[in-house]
Amino acid sequence: MATVTDIDRRWVFLIMGLVVLITYIGGVAKDLPVSEYVDAYYKTIEDLPAGSVVMLSADFDPASAAELLPMYQATIHHLLRRDIRIVNVATWPAAPPYTRRWFDQIAPQYGKVYGTDWLELGFLPGDDVAMGQIGGSITSAFAEDARENKPITDFPLTAELSSNMGGIVLLVSLSAGYPGILEWIAQVGGRYDVPILTGTTAVQTPDLYAYYPSQCSGFLGAATGATQYLQLVTVGETEVPDDPDNLATVRASNQRRMFVQSWAHGILILLIIVGNVLYFRGRSQTA
């Protein structure tokens, strides 16, 4: 005789899909309480003096954009808004063409000039070795920039940089896995005494708690962290429904996503409890 435990698992997929769909349609944007780690990320950037140079590493690809792209957009806005200059690098091959779009869109909003206020160095293969190379000498690691293919020593921004991360006051890595934040900490953070901030996918987030605050000054954990950070960066801004790339709109969209996620998590927990109850009941009946 068929029992509840014999239910086709596709029914579970269907239930989850329906829950996500229904809550997505009726989702509401609500503020989340900001965690200590996100607050530390925000304050570290706030405390930087204007004109400082920050290295922003895109260690992700489109597969993890759902979680990391809002962080990336918000971080660029936050840095440029505070007149902090950015050296943009990537250790994932699919990152540069993907992230270029956001610099193209955001930098002009603050009147920033390429080569003076921000620089795109592109992808460097070699994972940990590449990170060590970037830390040791950025001009050796990247002979030319990725945008105009000019020697990077021709740009005013690089005139202030020197070997051993000289001139870089902060490293921000938006990390989807390997190579990512754990490798930056090992290869650059400890060696050159550079403060590090990171935003990570949910899968990588549990690893970060052990590094905070001694080796990582603050972090954004998954979509939740991204939403909290967006709230801090867009205080007082209202969403513009006609402009999906507006940061306040991104924040509102992320907040609605968190509403959906909360419901989906609740249903999952319920399913786990039901599954366990059925399992133990079945085991006791067999015994």
């Binding site: 997505y24 954009a65 759902a66 899968v203 549990p206 969209s253 996503r257 998590h265």
Partner: peptide, 20 residues
């Protein structure tokens, strides 16, 4: 368990982004 929860969180984020 915490790692599993975070992993599920990430997978849902991808699903919701696709839906969006």
């Amino acid at each position: 368990g915490s790692m599993f929860g975070f992993t599920v969180l990430g997978r849902y984020a991808l699903l919701i982004e696709r839906l969006d």
